[in-house]
Design a protein around this nucleic acid. Structure first.
Lengths: 112, 112
DNA sequence: CTATTATGCACTCTCTATGAATCATTTATA
DNA sequence: TATAAATGATTCATAGAGAGTGCATAATAG
């Protein structure tokens, strides 16, 4: 990233990430997995898992999803089958929508 | 990151990210926002938004959540109030669980 | 059909998130 | 209670994510 980015996040995003973090922590504990074990299974470092469990928003989404999937947290509350089906349906709807969004030209001629 | 990481993702994670991407794209189109506009509102670049809409797993989760929130995609199917409530409840449950996971020592003495 | 705008893609440069390693602290169990 | 293990916290080097840019192409308003 060029320049300093110091992103600012909405409260909603922060809360969502924090929630996902504690859900993961809870599921991991219930499954009796150590941080090290879960990290290894997910192919990430223990440090990254720590940040994920703390709800850090700068983690890559792939790592977070991977960990969540391993401990059994259903994203979108759906298993893979439903996820795929839902994705197809959404893609279908997308083809019906305009492929690019045009802003109306200011010359609206509402000045009679 | 040290060493080459070339992470590998499960199908579930890939599908989930892809779904989130098309949902965002759909919502953006319905709200008649250009990629540039949405990116600006989220405080990210258009390039990053493109990757998010394509379901790229290497984007930072904060950016994805931020964009999703802006176009009105409810994460965990919950508004901020419910999200916060749910988070508190989960944190409470967490305090009841052991704070660290111990693996049983192999000396189980099941060798009579 | 045409003009104009949005999107897709590729490139460079910069900065930072990640993996690894280490130490301090907390915690479960034998 | 003693003690080995798990977690928390910090540091460091670096691979690679993200911003910015330009251009080709697609797509829509008029």
């Amino acid at each position: 990233m060029p320049k300093s980015t110091t992103r600012t996040y909405s409260r909603y995003s922060r809360t969502a990430a924090a929630l996902l973090g504690v859900l993961i922590r809870e599921a991991r504990t219930e499954k009796k997995l150590t941080a090290q074990e879960l990290a290894e299974r997910a192919g990430i470092s223990r440090g990254l898992l720590q940040r994920i469990e703390k709800g850090n928003l700068k983690c890559e989404i792939g790592a977070v999803f991977e960990v969540a999937a391993i401990v059994g947290i259903k994203l979108f509350d759906a298993d893979e089958r439903r996820l795929t089906k839902y994705q197809r349906e959404t893609e279908d709807k997308l083809t019906l929508l305009p492929k690019s969004v045009r802003k109306p030209t200011k010359a609206v001629h509402d000045d009679f």
